[in-house]
């Protein structure tokens, strides 16, 4: 079965983003497919590559990045939410003449069409916020 998972919650502010992460892992472990991860609103902060966590705590952003790369997941960060919150990849950084890149390369920064597509194509859409 094809799942898409939508993440509205910022890491650490609430349990939502880590629930989404555990749910995504369970989907994969159960042998189902993930059609797309879609990060929106404060959820885009899950794609930040500039976070540092205390050594005895989980770094959720790094966990997402690892999961996405290991399983070659399609992961999309909503462009309008991302730009406003300082989540930019190399392309956006260049376009707006910013002095850095803050998004992991494992996610694409794209528009809401990707969420609409996921809602139409996936068998199940599960949202966490």
């Amino acid at each position: 079965m094809k799942f898409s998972i939508v993440i509205y919650g910022a890491p650490y502010s609430s349990e939502a983003a880590s629930s989404a992460y555990r749910f995504a892992r369970a989907v994969i472990e159960q042998g189902h497919g993930i059609y797309r991860l879609f990060f929106m609103g404060d959820g885009v902060l899950n794609a930040s590559r500039l976070s540092v966590s205390p050594q005895d705590e989980v770094n959720l952003q790094h966990s997402w990045d690892k999961l996405i790369r290991e399983h070659k997941l399609d992961s999309v960060v909503c462009v309008s939410s991302a730009l406003k919150r300082g989540i930019v990849d190399a392309t956006e950084s260049e376009r707006y003449e910013l002095d850095g890149v803050s998004a992991f390369e494992s996610s694409d920064i794209a528009g809401l069409g990707q969420l609409v597509d996921a809602s139409v194509v996936s068998d199940r859409v599960v949202s966490f916020g």
């Binding site: 749910f23 369970a26 199940r124 966490f128």
Partner: peptide
Amino acid sequence: DYEGFVDLCCEHDKLVNWF
């Protein structure tokens, strides 16, 4: 557990998440 949650999602046609 999470595995059971995933199974439950498959048993129903769609989800409505309240948060």
